[in-house]
Amino acid sequence: MVHFIQLVLPLCPNDQQPTPDKTLHAIVKAELTRHFGRCDAHTRTPADGRWTEGGQGRHQDLVIYEVMSRLIDDQWWEWYQEVLEKRFRRVQVIVRTLP
């Protein structure tokens, strides 16, 4: 069985930097391509992320990366999620899998 894995990352690394950091996204795409042999990135039209925090509505443009893998290496994904959280200065980066 092949697993479909998505990573949801902010277009901009933090609220203080309102412009996209293309270097960070290029690194992510290169790392995923090297590790999985292929990576698709939805970068032309960012996804529209919305949530409520502290009673206030928040918004963020998001980029979605997709890879496919026969096996899911939980240790590697936990490590890579931590790397991305530090790199993008986020409390949480979403990584989800679909069978």
Rank of each mutant, 00 (worst) to 15 (best):
M1R: 08
V2Y: 12
V2W: 11
H3F: 14
I5H: 01
L7K: 07
V8N: 13
V8F: 06
L9S: 05
L11V: 14
L11D: 07
C12Y: 01
P13I: 11
P13H: 13
P13E: 13
P13G: 07
D15A: 13
D15T: 11
D15F: 04
Q16W: 01
Q16Y: 02
T19P: 00
D21T: 05
D21L: 02
K22A: 15
T23K: 04
L24T: 00
A26P: 02
I27T: 10
V28K: 07
V28M: 07
V28Q: 07
V28D: 06
K29A: 11
K29Y: 02
K29F: 03
K29D: 03
E31H: 11
L32E: 04
L32N: 06
T33L: 12
T33S: 14
T33N: 10
R34W: 01
R34P: 00
H35R: 15
F36K: 00
G37E: 05
R38M: 08
R38N: 12
C39S: 03
C39A: 09
D40R: 14
D40N: 10
A41L: 08
A41F: 04
A41R: 12
A41M: 11
T43G: 01
T43K: 05
T43I: 14
R44Y: 11
R44D: 11
R44I: 12
T45M: 09
P46G: 06
A47I: 10
A47Q: 12
A47L: 14
D48L: 15
W51P: 12
E53W: 14
G54Q: 03
G54N: 08
G55H: 07
G55C: 03
R58K: 15
Q60C: 09
Q60A: 14
Q60V: 07
D61I: 00
V63W: 12
V63I: 14
V63M: 02
I64Q: 10
I64M: 12
I64V: 15
I64P: 06
E66D: 00
V67W: 07
M68F: 13
S69Y: 00
S69C: 01
S69V: 04
S69A: 09
R70L: 07
I72S: 06
I72E: 04
D73V: 04
D73T: 04
D73G: 02
D74L: 05
D74R: 03
Q75I: 08
W76M: 01
E78R: 01
V83E: 10
E85Q: 13
E85H: 10
K86L: 13
R87S: 00
R89S: 09
R89M: 07
R90C: 07
R90N: 05
R90T: 04
V91L: 08
V91R: 06
V91E: 10
V91D: 12
Q92C: 08
V93N: 10
I94T: 12
I94N: 12
V95C: 08
V95A: 09
T97W: 12
T97A: 13
L98R: 09
P99S: 06
P99A: 09
